[in-house]
């Protein structure tokens, strides 16, 4: 079974972004970029399937600028077999990403697509679900653990009330949550090897998808600032303050 893993190049999760003074967006210039953390978890899950003989090939796909190639290389260093870069400058909405991935799935015919549950930049949490719908496949979102057997996959999902397990007919789309695994660090030899793994480049035109954004971002603003900073010396003083604020009675 072939497993397809879409990975997004995003701002590193340790970096705090700043809004541009003209409110046209956030300033990403010279900031550290990394693979979306949920996608690292997806790559790890796919590579584990290959190591245990359940997957035959792990194909990494990224939609983004030329630098997204670095993100693909990182995934290849973790154990992916080959990459596909769909080169697009500028923002691509989840629906457009889903359409591009659908076109790639039509060609590649994977048995499973593993995406992250959410990109930590746009916080959309849509792409995997949209892809599943466009393909007419089942989905297991927010995966906590997986159990692959012949023709089906059981997914324990992290839901608001706890865990829910569903069984999906393959092919299917699974989106990863934090507890699914602990992604590995790529070793230096594997980073070197990854440089030689094949990466194909495509354009949205090749895939017949119009990626022009449909929504208009009118403004990107700083969130309301909290004053904060008052220190209390004792527990009793803390309780005084909470009573004064009227939040405990």
């Amino acid at each position: 079974m072939k497993v397809l893993v879409p990975v997004k190049r995003v701002i590193d999760y340790n970096v705090k972004v700043r809004v541009k003074a003209d409110q046209s967006g956030v300033d990403l210039a010279n900031l550290k970029m990394s693979m979306n953390p949920f996608d690292e978890i997806a790559v790890e899950a796919a590579v584990k399937m290959k190591e245990s003989g359940k997957a035959t090939e792990v194909v990494i796909v990224s939609v983004g600028p030329a630098q997204a190639l670095d993100t693909i290389r990182t995934a290849l260093a973790m154990g992916g077999d080959r990459g596909i870069l769909v080169k697009v400058e500028g923002p691509v909405e989840p629906l457009a990403v889903a359409k591009l991935l659908k076109a790639i799935c039509d060609e590649e015919k994977p048995g499973l697509v593993l995406t992250g549950k959410q990109a930590i930049d746009s916080d959309a949490n849509q792409t995997g679900q949209m892809l599943a719908a466009l393909l007419g496949w089942g989905q297991g979102t927010f995966a906590h653990s997986l159990e692959l057997s012949d023709g089906t996959i059981k997914v324990a999902r992290e839901i608001d009330g706890g865990l829910q397990t569903v069984s999906l007919k393959l092919p299917a789309v699974v989106t990863t949550d934090l507890r699914l695994n602990q992604p590995r660090y790529a070793s230096l030899p594997n980073i070197m090897k990854a440089k030689k793994k094949p990466v194909a480049e495509k354009s949205p035109g090749d895939l017949g998808v119009d990626v022009t954004p449909r929504c208009k971002v009118l403004k990107v603003a700083e969130p309301a600032k909290r004053a904060g900073g008052v220190k209390v010396k004792t527990v009793a003083e803390l309780v005084d303050k909470l009573v004064e604020a009227g939040v405990v009675t």
Partner: peptide, 16 residues
């Protein structure tokens, strides 16, 4: 309005 980047920015977005 919706939060993006872990709530470090608030986006005002117009739907088509």
């Amino acid at each position: 309005e919706r939060p993006i980047y872990a709530g470090n920015a608030i986006e005002t977005v117009q739907a088509p």
